[in-house]
Amino acid sequence: MEMRGNLYENSNVFSTGNRPYSEASEYSYDDVYVNEQNAETDQTRSTKKPMKTASGTNTSGSRCSRLTAVCLGLLCVLLLIVIIVMWITITAERDQLCTRCNVTNQEKLSAIELNARQGWVYFNSKFYYISPINKNWTDSREECRNRGADMVIITSTEEQIFTAALTGSNTAWIGLTDTEEEGVWTWVDGTALTTRYWNENEPNNLGNNENCAETGSSEKKGWNDASCCAERMWISRTSEGPATTSDDCAVIPTSESTSACVTANILK
């Protein structure tokens, strides 16, 4: 009996560490249960964390998309504003240009109409005037200057045809002379003669006294050299509007030109 009692006591004192066996078993079950709960909790956390991360990424992505859309919208609005401003500016400038063109055209038409009453003819952006009376070359040029123009300079076939039509069956002085140097013909503006429309065998300086050029009715070869003291009609030309003159105001020729021709006539 005593041995059994000892065995029973020894069996009761089996433990893990210093605890009895029964208590050790109970605690081990509890530990397993707790560990399982901890494991499940850890697994749940590890499973939820990626979900949180994915949700956060989606939120950031949606925010970026919304921000991009807003920026694009603002850019479109700004572009539309710029286009509208440019259109308004271009339209305003076009209207101003049209207004200026209309005013310029009206002024030009008014000038053409006004000058046409005084005998001026408009051709290729220039005004031409052929005199109804005859004068020597020097006085004729003085008349042109008093009208805000100068003697005609012919530099193209079209202009030669036009001036020939102005003269009709008559001849008229043009702004060409070789008074400075015999045989070297220059225009009244100082430029050298390059395009020529001389008659056949002209210029011939007949009598060594033909230093001024006249044009006739021939469209291609109508020029002739003549004495500057001879009296002819003349043709004036200006690129700008000619000066307004009154038909009642006679232009008095300069004494120098008149005396020169008078002296030449006396010598003859």
Rank of each mutant, 00 (worst) to 15 (best):
S110I: 01
D178K: 09
A213T: 05
T99H: 10
P20V: 00
A230S: 11
E182T: 13
E180T: 08
D247S: 15
S62R: 11
K49N: 15
A260R: 12
N18G: 01
G183I: 00
T89N: 14
Y27S: 03
E93Y: 10
K126V: 02
W87T: 02
N205H: 13
T258M: 06
M86K: 13
I174K: 08
V262I: 07
W223E: 09
Q160E: 10
E36L: 07
S55W: 11
P253L: 02
G183W: 03
G148I: 05
L72P: 00
D42K: 08
T59M: 08
E202S: 13
N199M: 11
P132Y: 12
L267K: 00
E23F: 08
L109A: 14
T238Y: 09
A149H: 04
E202M: 12
S217K: 00
E210I: 09
R45W: 08
G5K: 10
S125N: 11
N134S: 08
V13S: 05
N201H: 10
D150M: 05
K48V: 04
N124R: 08
T191M: 10
N134R: 14
T263L: 02
I133V: 14
T194E: 13
P203F: 02
S46F: 02
C76H: 05
R63G: 03
T16L: 07
V184I: 08
N38F: 05
Q106E: 11
Y8P: 03
I153G: 01
A264I: 02
R117Q: 13
S140L: 02
K108Y: 07
I84L: 05
S25K: 03
E142S: 03
K52N: 05
A54N: 13
D189G: 06
R45Q: 11
V184N: 11
C76Y: 03
N12I: 05
S140I: 00
T89V: 11
L75A: 07
W234L: 00
I81C: 04
E93P: 00
A111L: 06
M1D: 06
L109E: 15
E143W: 04
N204A: 08
T44H: 05
Q43R: 14
E93Q: 11
A149S: 14
A39S: 12
E36G: 08
R232S: 01
K48A: 11
V184A: 08
G119K: 12
N115A: 15
N201A: 10
T89E: 07
S131M: 01
F127S: 02
V251I: 15
V32L: 06
T163W: 03
L97D: 09
C144V: 04
E36S: 09
N224V: 02
Q43Y: 10
